[in-house]
């Protein structure tokens, strides 16, 4: 074996995921039929859970075009695409001497990342859950005493019903 070129080009996580998908990798149970090695599926399983799972070539090309003005190093761009940092605290470890080099522009860069690169579904659900929790707490605060009482009564009624063998609701008196 002869290594002709150790680094014939860096690949983003998206490119590897896209390559594995093109070969037939998916979350589908039919994966046993696909001519892909188990080790490749492990890589696929890792990447499909990462921030790159719903990126497209268009997203990446647009980001590469729009981030040129920031004069980022190739490694930094690669890291940003792979991780999709959506806050200052997330982008800070990726960019070397971020304060010195960018200052206030750093927030602008984060906004660009959030705007251009799509949000992974896992992140969406987490944010939705936190928003729901916030809404619920505010609703509870706004409720009057009477409303809370009726809500409690409704809960009691629900608990007092049992299911018959047929699956019908049966009231327990």
């Amino acid at each position: 074996m002869k290594i002709k070129e150790a680094n014939a080009g860096a690949l983003t996580n998206f490119e590897v995921l896209d390559f594995l998908r093109s070969r037939g990798a998916s979350k589908d149970p039919t994966r046993v039929i696909v001519p892909i090695a188990p080790s490749e599926f492990k890589v696929y399983d890792y990447l499909v859970e990462s921030a790159t799972c719903n990126q497209t070539k268009e997203h990446i090309n647009e980001f590469l075009e729009r981030c040129k003005k920031y004069k980022l190093a190739k490694a930094e761009v690669l890291n940003i695409i792979n991780l999709r940092p959506s806050a200052l605290v997330e982008i800070d470890p990726i960019i070397e001497q971020s304060e010195k080099r960018f200052g206030d522009q750093l927030e602008e860069l984060v906004n660009l990342v959030v705007e251009v690169l799509p949000e992974p579904p896992t992140q969406k659900t987490a944010e939705e859950d936190s928003n729901k929790d916030k809404e619920e707490t505010t609703d509870e605060k706004n409720m009057d005493g009477n409303e809370t009482e009726t809500a409690n009564n409704e809960q009691i009624d629900e608990h007092e019903t049992e299911q018959t063998e047929d699956g019908e609701q049966m009231e327990v008196s």
Binding site: M1, A10, L11
Partner: peptide, 10 residues
């Protein structure tokens, strides 16, 4: 994280 490497093998 991932790279392409050009290899020659007999």
């Amino acid at each position: 994280m991932f790279y392409l490497s050009l290899i020659e093998h007999t």
